[in-house]
């Protein structure tokens, strides 16, 4: 669900060790990279490496049918570009039923059927879905080993609150890191630096830095990144001057990392 805010479709690359996703948004300003290791699943088996092309917008709609206590099983046949999504419901309401959502992979061209939206009214049925997928090419090359000048670790809930609050007041934000202070400032279109409204930084913030950095970013993207905050208690902001910001949420068996290109020439 976090990814679908940024990218509409992407390939889940599956191998014996993990499931990975990496995709850019349409404007090429942000990139999301996700990895979930095999131990993060109750059971996991991958007989051969394969990409699962998924329309994330549609997948998110399917996921809305699940409740927190549902166990979700993903199965893809070896010979077909088909993914089978089954909710093994434990709640009393859902117990007599389970869903089997199926969709074709990247080669499929059939449109997403309109009856999908009626799925909640068709509980006793197996519902088979064909979801058309774009031919967007994901980035498959691994990222270079970037060494950042600063790393700020803070509670993810605080980061979410800060960017949400500031997004009510402006479209951009400047993040400055010095030895003892992280300053996240709202930028006004015609304001001078002295007019910036500083947000307080809560306890639990760790600053690691080699060099002072000051970067400007679009708040809209940061707010979207922060929707991954429920996945991890902490978020790391990795920055160097004039390079993309890395917002990293690590969880027990994987991570979601978001990259955001800065604004330059402020």
């Amino acid at each position: 669900k976090s990814c679908s805010i940024l990218v509409t479709d992407a390939n889940f690359e599956c191998n014996e060790e993990n499931i990975m996703l990496q995709a850019m948004d349409n404007s090429h300003i942000a990139l999301v990279s996700v990895e979930i290791g095999a131990p993060g699943f109750t059971s996991y088996r991958c007989d051969r490496t394969m990409p699962l092309g998924v329309d994330l917008t549609s997948l998110t709609k399917v996921l809305r049918c699940a409740k927190d206590e549902n166990i979700c099983t993903l199965k893809a046949a070896d010979e077909a570009d088909v993914l089978n999504l089954v909710y093994d419901a434990k709640s009393a309401f859902f117990s007599p039923f389970f869903f089997a959502f199926m969709w074709h992979g990247r080669d499929a061209s059939s449109p997403f059927p309109p009856f999908f939206l009626l799925c909640s009214a068709l509980l006793p049925l197996f519902i088979h879905l064909n979801i058309s997928l774009s031919s967007q090419t994901p980035i498959t090359s691994s990222w270079p080993e970037t060494k950042y000048d600063t790393r700020v670790t803070l509670p993810s809930a605080e980061f979410t609150r800060i960017v949400r609050d500031l997004s009510q007041l402006g479209e951009h934000v400047r993040i400055e890191v010095s030895k003892e202070v992280v300053r996240i400032s709202k930028l006004k279109a015609k304001s001078s630096a002295e007019d910036e409204d500083n947000d307080s930084i809560p306890t639990g913030v760790v600053i690691e830095m080699n060099q002072h950095v000051s970067l400007t970013f679009s708040l809209k993207y940061l707010v979207n990144f922060s929707k991954s905050g429920s996945l991890s208690g902490e978020v790391q902001l990795l920055m160097s001057n004039d390079v993309p910001l890395l917002v990293a949420y690590d969880f027990t068996q994987g991570y979601i990392r978001c990259y955001l290109a800065p604004k330059i020439g402020d």
Partner: peptide, 14 residues
């Protein structure tokens, strides 16, 4: 407010 950069400038794309 400055120019919005894209990621292509910073990272190699296939």
């Amino acid at each position: 407010m400055g120019r919005q950069q894209t990621l292509g400038k910073f990272f190699e794309m296939p």
